[in-house]
Amino acid sequence: MVLRLMLLLVPLLVSGCSGVFFYPMKPWAQNPARQGLDYEDVILIQPDGLRLHAWWLPARGDSIATVYYLHGNGENISTHLANVQWMPEQGFNVLLLDYRGYGLSEGSAELPEVFDDIQLGLDWLVASGRAEGQPIILFGQSLGAAMGTRVLARPANEDKVQCVVFEGTFASYRDIAKDVMGRSWLLWPLQWLVVPTLPPRDWDPENNIAALAPRPLLILHSREDPVIPYAQGERLYHAAEAPKLFQPLRGGHGQGTRDPAVRARIVDFLRNKACLGR
Score class of each variant (00 low, 15 high):
1 M>P: 08
3 L>V: 14
4 R>V: 15
9 L>T: 15
13 L>I: 13
15 S>R: 14
16 G>D: 04
17 C>R: 13
20 V>E: 10
22 F>M: 07
22 F>Q: 09
24 P>L: 09
24 P>A: 11
26 K>M: 10
31 N>A: 10
31 N>D: 15
36 G>L: 01
36 G>D: 08
40 E>D: 10
43 I>D: 10
44 L>N: 07
45 I>F: 01
46 Q>F: 04
48 D>N: 13
49 G>C: 09
51 R>Y: 02
54 A>I: 08
57 L>R: 05
60 R>D: 10
60 R>T: 14
62 D>A: 14
64 I>L: 13
65 A>P: 06
66 T>E: 09
66 T>R: 02
68 Y>N: 07
70 L>W: 02
73 N>Q: 05
81 L>F: 01
83 N>A: 12
84 V>D: 03
89 E>I: 02
92 F>D: 05
93 N>W: 07
97 L>F: 07
97 L>A: 04
98 D>S: 08
99 Y>S: 06
100 R>W: 02
100 R>S: 07
103 G>R: 06
104 L>R: 15
106 E>G: 02
106 E>K: 00
112 P>Y: 10
112 P>S: 04
113 E>A: 12
114 V>M: 12
114 V>H: 08
122 L>P: 00
123 D>L: 05
123 D>W: 04
125 L>G: 04
126 V>R: 10
126 V>Q: 13
127 A>L: 11
128 S>D: 01
129 G>P: 03
130 R>V: 14
130 R>F: 08
132 E>G: 09
134 Q>H: 14
134 Q>W: 01
136 I>L: 11
137 I>M: 02
140 G>Y: 05
141 Q>I: 15
142 S>H: 03
145 A>G: 15
146 A>R: 04
146 A>Y: 01
147 M>T: 15
151 V>G: 03
152 L>G: 03
155 P>C: 07
155 P>E: 05
158 E>S: 11
158 E>W: 07
163 C>R: 01
165 V>Y: 00
169 T>P: 05
172 S>C: 10
173 Y>C: 00
173 Y>K: 00
174 R>N: 13
174 R>F: 01
175 D>H: 12
177 A>Q: 00
181 M>F: 15
181 M>W: 06
182 G>A: 11
184 S>K: 02
185 W>V: 15
185 W>M: 13
186 L>G: 03
187 L>G: 05
188 W>L: 07
189 P>W: 05
194 V>M: 02
195 V>W: 09
195 V>P: 00
201 R>L: 14
204 D>M: 06
205 P>E: 05
206 E>K: 13
207 N>I: 05
208 N>T: 08
216 P>D: 04
221 H>C: 06
225 D>C: 01
226 P>Y: 12
235 R>G: 08
238 H>D: 15
239 A>G: 06
239 A>D: 13
241 E>S: 13
243 P>F: 09
244 K>I: 05
247 Q>K: 12
250 R>C: 09
252 G>I: 02
252 G>R: 11
254 G>M: 14
256 G>N: 13
257 T>D: 02
257 T>S: 09
259 D>A: 10
261 A>C: 06
262 V>N: 06
262 V>C: 03
267 V>G: 05
267 V>E: 08
268 D>E: 15
270 L>C: 03
270 L>G: 05
271 R>F: 07
274 A>H: 14
274 A>N: 12
276 L>K: 01
277 G>E: 06
277 G>Q: 11
278 R>H: 09
278 R>N: 08
